[in-house]
Simulated assay, not measured.
Amino acid sequence: MERHAPAIRTLGILGAGRLGTVLARLAADAGLRVLVATSRDATLIARPMAAIGAEAAAPASVIAESDAIVLALPLGRYRELPADALAGRLVIDAMNYWWGADGARPDLDDPRTSTSELVQQHLARSRVVKGLGHMGYQDLEDEAHPAGSPDRKAIAIAGDAAEDLAVVAALVDALGFDPVIAGLLASGIMLEPGAEAFGADVDADELRAMLDRFPTSQRGIVVARARGGHLFETTADNDS
């Protein structure tokens, strides 16, 4: 029997920097209720969030009231995420490693694992999907278009459960982009800095071609060598 992915009606975003703010505006424009939190007092971001149709809230409220939570924080802070509060929740990891923000962190630049797998290890009882972090925030803001538009751009996602991928794919579509499934969560390394798809502002066909070229790219060869000569499975579990 065909299963339909539940819709995201309330989207939570942890992080109110440039990426978090752009995603909040796009989600609000799509008709979602959007809750945004930072590590600061929620009142400090209340006015700018209200101006784009979102609500500022405490992290605990964002997590408790949202159907899915986007991580738009510096990756180096992922161990600060409340694993207990996020247990059982759908978490969309939009974080990337930047040495300027995160410092020298060899653990975040290890080709033997994707950074989203590290997040999943910390959030062991959450369902993590990699997504919304490989396109630049400027392009996200400028390139959103309705479904069917000839110049619509694409965003890739990666995750281990087909149902969760379906939910996030529907969100990507609602935000104004064509979703492309990269594969299992480990495949998210193809969306990280150093990969051709990182920073890409292209349509779905070209994004798929970039992902297909990853194994023969310089980064792909480095990853394969670090992983004993192989990359990763690319098909999500359709029985999930």
Rank of each mutant, 00 (worst) to 15 (best):
A169R: 04
R112V: 07
D160R: 04
R112H: 04
A37L: 03
V34D: 06
G159F: 03
D139G: 08
L44C: 05
L185C: 12
P193W: 10
R18T: 14
V172F: 10
D205M: 14
G131S: 09
A104R: 11
H4I: 15
P6W: 02
A204W: 07
G17D: 05
R40P: 02
L231A: 09
V119P: 05
I189W: 06
G20A: 07
M95L: 10
H4T: 13
G103F: 09
A186Y: 11
V62M: 06
E192A: 03
A60K: 09
R3V: 13
A182W: 04
D178S: 13
R105F: 10
G100T: 11
V36S: 00
A200T: 07
R208E: 15
L32I: 01
D151W: 06
G100I: 08
R112M: 08
Y137M: 00
V70E: 00
D160M: 08
T235E: 11
Q121K: 13
A101M: 15
T43S: 13
G176S: 12
L14N: 02
D201S: 15
G159I: 04
E196C: 02
A94R: 01
M190R: 15
A169T: 09
G17C: 06
D142N: 10
R127P: 02
R3L: 12
R3D: 05
I8M: 05
A30Y: 01
A5T: 07
V180E: 04
R79F: 04
K153E: 09
L32Q: 01
R125P: 06
L118A: 08
A154H: 03
A144H: 07
H230Q: 13
Y78H: 10
L184H: 07
L23Q: 01
A166V: 06
G76T: 08
M210S: 02
H4M: 11
R89C: 07
P193K: 11
R33Q: 00
E80D: 15
A28Y: 00
A144E: 00
G53L: 06
R125K: 15
L26D: 04
L184T: 14
G228Q: 11
A51H: 03
R227W: 07
A64C: 08
D102R: 07
A5G: 08
T113S: 08
A42L: 04
V222T: 15
L184E: 15
Q138N: 14
R40V: 05
A54T: 00
W98P: 05
G229H: 08
N96I: 06
